[in-house]
Amino acid sequence: MRILGIETSCDETGVAIYDDEKGLLAHQLYSQVTLHADYGGIVPELASRDHVKKTIPLIKLTLAEAGLMQKNLDGVAYTAGPGLVGALLVGATIGRSLAYAWNIPAVAVHHMEGHLLAPMLEDTPLPFPFIALLVSGGHTLLVEVRGIGEYQILGESIDDAVGEAFDKTAKLMGLNYPGGPLLSKLAEKGDSTRFTFPRPMTTIPGLDMSFSGLKTFAANTIKMNGNDTQTRANIARAFEDAVVDTLVIKCQRALKQFHMKRLVIAGGVSANRHLRIKLKELMSSIDGQIFYPRMEFCTDNGAMIAYAGMQRLKNGEHTDLSVKAFPRWPIDQLTSIKSEN
Rank of each mutant, 00 (worst) to 15 (best):
T55N: 03
T55L: 15
T55H: 03
T55C: 11
I56K: 06
P57F: 04
P57T: 11
P57I: 04
P57D: 06
P57Y: 08
P57K: 04
L58H: 07
I59F: 01
I59K: 07
I59V: 11
K60I: 07
K60Y: 03
K60M: 10
K60F: 12
L61Y: 06
L61P: 04
L61W: 07
L61K: 13
L61I: 12
L61G: 04
T62C: 14
T62A: 10
T62S: 08
T62H: 02
T62K: 02
L63P: 03
A64V: 04
A64G: 05
A64Q: 11
A64I: 05
A64L: 00
E65C: 04
E65T: 14
E65N: 12
E65R: 13
E65K: 14
A66Y: 06
A66N: 09
A66Q: 06
A66F: 05
A66K: 05
G67Q: 08
G67C: 05
G67V: 08
L68P: 08
L68S: 09
L68M: 01
L68Y: 02
L68E: 07
M69C: 14
M69S: 15
M69F: 14
Q70W: 13
K71H: 14
K71M: 10
K71F: 12
K71S: 15
N72P: 13
N72R: 08
L73Y: 00
L73H: 06
L73Q: 03
L73W: 01
L73F: 06
D74S: 11
G75C: 11
V76C: 07
V76H: 12
A77F: 02
A77Q: 07
A77D: 05
Y78H: 10
T79V: 05
T79I: 05
T79F: 01
A80Q: 13
A80R: 09
A80I: 07
A80G: 13
A80T: 12
A80N: 01
A80L: 15
G81C: 01
G81L: 04
G81H: 05
G81T: 00
P82C: 11
P82W: 00
P82D: 02
G83L: 11
L84E: 10
L84A: 01
L84G: 00
L84P: 10
L84D: 04
L84S: 01
V85P: 12
V85K: 05
V85D: 14
V85E: 07
G86A: 13
G86L: 11
G86W: 06
G86Y: 08
G86N: 12
A87W: 02
A87Q: 07
A87F: 11
L88M: 00
L88V: 04
L88Y: 06
